[in-house]
Design a binder for these strands. Sequence first.
DNA 1: CGCATTATTTAAACTAGTTTAAGATTAATG
DNA 2: CATTAATCTTAAACTAGTTTAAATAATGCG
Lengths: 195, 195
Amino acid sequence: MQAELLRTYFLNIIALTPSELERIMSHYHERKVPKGEFVLRQGEICGFEGYVLEGCFKISASDAAGMEKVLYFAAQDWWVMELDSFTNQIPSKLDIQALADSVLLEISKADKEKLYKEIPKTERLFRIMSHKAVAAWQQRLIRNHTMTAEQRYDHFITTYPDIAAMLTNKLIASYLGITQEFVSVIRKRRALKKS
Amino acid sequence: MQAELLRTYFLNIIALTPSELERIMSHYHERKVPKGEFVLRQGEICGFEGYVLEGCFKISASDAAGMEKVLYFAAQDWWVMELDSFTNQIPSKLDIQALADSVLLEISKADKEKLYKEIPKTERLFRIMSHKAVAAWQQRLIRNHTMTAEQRYDHFITTYPDIAAMLTNKLIASYLGITQEFVSVIRKRRALKKS
DNA sequence: CGCATTATTTAAACTAGTTTAAGATTAATG
DNA sequence: CATTAATCTTAAACTAGTTTAAATAATGCG
């Protein structure tokens, strides 16, 4: 049972008795998501919070012209949801799509609220997770403002080699905020340097 | 007593009895910060979380070469802290400096932990605040990836006219991730359009 | 397998934004 | 108030990254 991963995840953040942990886990349900499937589309209300057991997801924003920008990728041990939409039950600004056959552990909005009531300690758990997320987004912004495209590319593929390996250049480009053509140039440049 | 602002802030997020609210407020202490003073420097451990009653702060990151990048500005009704440093008591990656004579309502790390214990509901309060912050940072990143420098400039000065009014071009440029010279160009372009 | 679609590479022309430098304005300071 | 320092503007030269386009390679699919 791979759900062990999520148990470990929670225990790394906060101390939980075995019974608390199991009560938390009981609200999460496994869901298989085939490659290509959208688990959330712009405009829909995000009814779930998902922990990735297997596979990989793309969380992206698209403008009116259909131009898509990848916000982040979520592989094993990451979370997928539209926080704003889930928390405030408002239409989602983002799309979430499986990039590979994937498995999620999902919790519904209703169950999440139940969880907070049943085990108040989970408020703390998710508060701390959220604090980490804020710090990470701040660092991402700083990287975008201080590093060149090539440096950001390097950072991405060395920090997340497993995720990068399953992505197309086009997706990496979108994540980095540059064009796929320029990713090609960067890759060529790096290939020359190494030889 | 301007602390009323903070009471309103909290009540807009979560329902609190008058006594709960006052117990929360009792942990916050007013602190005057003269213009130019650093309330946190890179490498120090952030021991406080501050709510801005008056004035304005600059939260920034500086690299080894002394190049400074403004992450955000915090004026009235905003928060100043280094979340990662405060939460995990690790050295701060950021500087926080008053851009004007300012007044903070501060809570220490120890008092914050006390607060969480005394009034568990505050875990929820700060979790929700943190969720809003994550959503805001995501939107900021999307703007950086989809808008031109001029569009970002427009967005900033129309969304935060009061803050923008008290900032130099240099600071706005740093926040937007462009040079001060280019801000000059943008301003000229806009001045010509209007006439 | 064979076809169609999509991703990748390459290159030339282009542009948004940078760099450098100098002069003009404004603000801080003794 | 005078002087120093800092900010702001302008402009010319430059560069990182884009756009367009065409050719090639890889992939999905009936």
